[in-house]
Each structure stands twice: as structure tokens, then as C-alpha cells.
Amino acid sequence: MNRIFASRLLPLMATGLVLVALFAAAGAGYENFLSARVVLNLFKDRAFLGVVAVGMTFVILSGGIDLSVGAVMAFTTVFLAKVIGTMGWSAPVAMLAAVGIGVGFGMFQGWVIHFFRIPAFLVTLAGMFLARGMAFVVSPRSVEIRSAFYDDLGERGVPLGEGLLLTVGPLVYLVVVAAGMVVAHGTRFGRNVYALGGNEASAALMGLPVGATRVGVYALCGGCAALGGVISTLALSSGDPTRGTGLELDAIAAAVIGGTVLTGGRGWVFGTFLGVLILGTIKTILDFDGSLDPAWLRIASGGLLLGFILLQKLIARQSVS
């Protein structure tokens, strides 16, 4: 029993180990790397990715995939810039509306996937085209967001001492991760998601609401992608139709590095949290160094992703035999 438990948590422990090792190596290699400010900046910088990755984790747990998240995020940022800047909506209403659009878009994708039995990657690929194109319809170029609400929100946060402030973006990120853990491990919906990803036929035979769960998962992911967009406008005070290109890959990579199995049914929201931090640390190291080619970020993420998938394969093979 003990061994089974240990092997089940092995990917999560491996992820944690890699994170610690990366940080230790960076701390040894670069002066001032191991500081609260660096860690806080990492959280600020990657908050939007973290939120999107939580939604992606649920989709992957259910046995699906969502390639539209980056485009949905981009749409959200220009939508906010447009309705707040040009049309004069109040910022909180606009944010709620944006997240609502994300949820609705996700629901639609989930419905098409479930009802018409079209592969998820294809539907969300089309969704990606659609959302990215619509972002360019709303605004073909980057737009600045000028709003008192945004300025006000930028100054708020939880003081951490030493003049450090946990701003709204990373705060929302942490809340989303915590909420995601509760939903995944403590609610009926969460258990349905795991059951659906484990074996759809069994889930249906057990009388679980397969359709509603699938639609719900994509709605959740769409909502998270939109929320990621909101956070990104908070950090950058602008909307940009090109933002979030390739974000879907980072989100998938974060989930997989965190131990979520791509075939569905197994994984942890907390693992994704660690995965985002690993990707963020690599980026921080590249920023810190300055002499390394930024192309290494892609190669390193690709290599890490591959390494963790192979690790999962190895574990799966061992637990079968």
C-alpha cells in the first residue's frame, strides 16, 4: 500500500525536486537570485499563465485538450481595452463580462466536442483561430487601458514587509490555485472530471453526467483563460491581439511537468502550480543571465516536457508490471 502511494505521488515529488534544484543552481550561479523580490516578481510575471494552467489541468484531467486559451486571453485583453477605453464601461463590469464571454465560449466548445463527437484538439484549434481573429476584429493593434480603477488596483495588495507588495494579479493566481485544488479533490464535479478522464464508458455506465461534466470543464477552462487575460491587463495596462501566442503550449507543459497525465484521469492542480513555477524559474534565469539566447527557453521547455512525459511512461509501465 505504502509503495503504491509512493509511486503515485512520485511525479509530484520529482517536480518539486526539479524546482528546488533549479532554484538552488540559480542561487549558486547568480548573485541576488535567492531573494524575496525575485520570487515575488516570478509570481507577478507568471500569474496569468498560472491561472490559465489551472483551467488547462481540468481539461487534461477530463481527457481533453484546449488549444484556444492563448487566443481567448488575447481577445479578453483587447475586449477590456475597447469597452473600458472607447465605450466607457466601468472596469469591474467589463471584467465580469469578459470572464462571462470566456465561460460561454468554453461551454460552446465543450458542447460541440461532446455533442458532435469531434476531437477536442480540432474544435479548440478552430476556436483558437476564431478567438484570435475576433481579437484582431476588436482591435488590430495594441491599445492602452486608461482607467482610475486600474491605477487604484495596481497600488493595492497584501504587504509582505521590506516594501514588498503581493499585488492583485499574483493574489488572484494563488486564490485560483487553492480553489482549483478544492474543486478537483473535494467536490462532486471534481470527482466526475477524474472519472471521465479515467474511462468515459465506465463513467457513463456509473450514471455520471458525462456531457455536463465535459461542457463544465471547457467552460471552466475558458473562464480561466479570460481571467488570465484580465490579470495580464492589470500587469501591462494594455490590450494586445497578439498576446498569449503559444500560451496553450506553456499551459499544457506546466500541467504535464506537474504530473498530470495527458491521457486524463490522473494529476494534481498543485502539480500544475509547481510546473508553472519551474517554467517561470527557467525564464527568470534567462532574464538574469542576459547572455543566454532566449531561444533556450523554448528548447528547455520542450526538453523538460519530454523528460516528464517519459518519466510518467516509466512509472506507468512499472505500476502495471
Partner: peptide, 25 residues
């Protein structure tokens, strides 16, 4: 149609084709 917007109709067409192919329909 601006080149950046062109993906929208493409997405619509590809979805329509897939719906025509779908077992349910």
C-alpha cells in the same frame, strides 16, 4: 478582410466541414 482577421472565416469553414463529417449528423 485584414490578414489577421482571416482566421475567423477559416475557423468557421473547418468547423462546418467537421460537423458534416460528424457521426451524429
Amino acid at each position: 478582410v485584414a490578414p489577421a482577421v482571416a482566421p475567423v472565416p477559416k475557423a468557421v469553414v473547418i468547423l462546418a466541414v467537421c460537423l458534416l463529417h460528424s457521426p451524429r449528423l
